[in-house]
Deep mutational scan, measured.
Amino acid sequence: EPEARKIVEKLINNGLSPEDVKRWAEKNNNPEVKKAAEEYQKR
């Protein structure tokens, strides 16, 4: 999901860690963003 990846990169560029992004995604019920954050961590 390229859109989710863009969101993850934007949040990380704004100073969030991938863990923060995953928590944000869970709080906002956004499994695509959570998955993208996990993939981002593996890179």
Rank of each mutant, 00 (worst) to 15 (best):
V8F: 13
G15F: 02
D20C: 08
E38I: 10
Q41F: 12
Q41C: 09
W24Y: 03
I12F: 08
A4M: 04
V8L: 13
A37N: 02
D20F: 05
E26M: 08
A4I: 07
I7G: 01
K10T: 13
E1L: 12
N28E: 08
E32F: 10
E1K: 11
S17V: 02
K10R: 13
N29K: 07
N14E: 15
N30I: 10
A4P: 07
R43E: 14
N13Q: 14
P31K: 08
N13E: 13
R23T: 10
G15C: 03
E19A: 08
S17Y: 03
N29V: 04
D20K: 03
S17I: 02
Q41E: 13
I7C: 08
L16D: 02
E1H: 10
R43T: 13
L16W: 15
A36Q: 07
E1P: 12
Y40F: 10
N14A: 15
V8T: 03
N14R: 13
K35M: 08
L16G: 03
N29R: 07
E38Q: 06
P31G: 06
A37D: 00
I7V: 08
L16S: 05
K6F: 09
Y40I: 06
I12P: 00
E9A: 09
K10M: 15
I12H: 03
A36K: 03
D20Q: 13
A4Y: 08
L16K: 04
A25P: 00
R23L: 13
R23F: 06
E19N: 07
Y40E: 03
L11T: 01
A4L: 05
A25R: 00
K6Q: 12
E39R: 06
E19I: 05
P31V: 09
R43W: 14
D20H: 05
K27Y: 10
Y40Q: 03
A25D: 00
E39P: 01
E1R: 10
E3C: 09
P2R: 15
N28P: 00
P2S: 15
A37H: 02
E3L: 08
V21E: 01
K27S: 10
E19M: 06
E26R: 02
N29Y: 05
N29G: 11
L11K: 01
N28G: 03
E9G: 04
D20Y: 05
K42W: 09
G15P: 00
R23Q: 12
N14L: 15
E39F: 06
Q41Y: 11
E32S: 11
A36H: 05
K10I: 14
K6D: 12
K35I: 09
A37L: 13
Y40W: 14
R43L: 14
V8D: 01
V33M: 06
G15D: 03
E39Y: 06
G15Y: 02
A37E: 01
K34S: 09
P2K: 15
K34M: 14
L11P: 00
R23V: 13
S17N: 06
P18N: 03
N14G: 12
A37C: 04
A37R: 00
K6M: 12
W24H: 01
K22L: 14
E9P: 00
V33A: 04
Y40T: 02
L16H: 05
P31H: 09
A4G: 04
P2F: 15
A36G: 02
A25S: 03
A4S: 06
E38V: 06
N13S: 13
W24F: 02
N28Y: 11
K6G: 08
A36S: 05
A4R: 02
Q41T: 09
I12R: 02
I7Y: 07
N30Q: 14
V21W: 01
K6L: 12
V33W: 03
S17G: 05
A36V: 11
I12W: 03
E26T: 06
E19W: 05
R43A: 13
P18W: 14
A37K: 00
P18S: 09
K27T: 10
N28R: 06
K35Y: 08
V8E: 01
L11N: 01
N14W: 14
A4E: 04
K27M: 13
R43C: 12
V33H: 02
K6E: 13
P18A: 13
K22V: 15
K34P: 02
E19Q: 07
R5Q: 14
K6Y: 12
L16R: 04
R5C: 12
L11R: 00
A25G: 03
R23Y: 08
L16F: 13
N28L: 06
A37G: 02
K22M: 15
V21R: 00
Y40H: 05
E9W: 11
K42D: 09
E9H: 08
K10C: 07
E26L: 06
E26Q: 07
